[in-house]
């Protein structure tokens, strides 16, 4: 058995059920709803994501790369013959200094945004473990209505607190309209 899937008919019911499962100390469980339900995050006791901090770090990385890149390619030729290969490509453009910050700001902005946006996108996918092509809940026929008018709560058998009979009783006490066993 992979877990229990409880079905509810209203957002209020699943909110109430989520609070009970949360207070029972479960960690490997999830809710599925056809639309965002206000207050469900709190009812499930979901911790804040670390994604913003990852994005901040990568944004600053992008900024640093942009500054370094532009500083390097605009650096004047070195006098030393052996280091000549390391010198950049200094160009005089409308009498500006080789290294003048205003001209570099657009690239700094763009690389910061690019790194942040890509990190947000791929970071989110990584954190929520996508892509995956199949999930055991799809074996329950009833689950199809999750995109329409039913609310589901899944408790995984892999959870430390999970005991087949006890967990089923816990879910039954939340008055679901149905409970299904999810098979692998």
């Amino acid at each position: 058995m992979w877990g229990y899937l409880a079905e509810y008919e209203t957002p209020g019911e699943i909110l109430h059920a989520a609070e009970q499962v949360r207070d029972a100390g479960f960690t490997k469980w999830d809710c599925f709803t056809p639309f965002p339900v206000h207050g469900l995050d709190n009812a499930m006791g979901i911790r804040k994501t670390i994604l913003p901090w990852i994005v901040l770090c990568m944004g600053l990385t992008g900024l640093t790369i942009a500054i370094t890149l532009q500083w390097y390619v605009n650096s004047p030729y070195t006098q030393s013959a052996s280091l000549y290969v390391l010198s950049g490509y200094p160009l005089t453009i409308s009498g500006k200094p080789y290294w003048s910050l205003p001209a570099n700001v657009p690239v700094m902005f763009e690389l910061t945004v690019l790194f942040s946006a890509l990190t947000t996108f791929y970071g989110l996918w990584t954190l929520i473990r996508l892509p995956r092509f199949h999930h055991p809940v799809f074996s329950v026929a009833r689950f199809r209505r999750v995109t329409d008018d039913r609310f589901f709560l899944l408790v995984e058998a892999a959870d430390e607190k999970f005991e087949a009979g006890v967990s089923r009783t816990l879910l039954e006490r939340t008055h679901p309209s149905a409970i299904d066993e999810v098979k692998d």
């Binding site: 453009i93 409308s94 009498g95 500006k96 205003p102 001209a103 700001v105 657009p106």
Partner: peptide
């Protein structure tokens, strides 16, 4: 503000 400044700055 920066867009306005930069265009004016580099056209000079």
């Amino acid at each position: 503000a920066f867009g306005q400044y930069m265009l004016i700055w580099y056209a000079n």
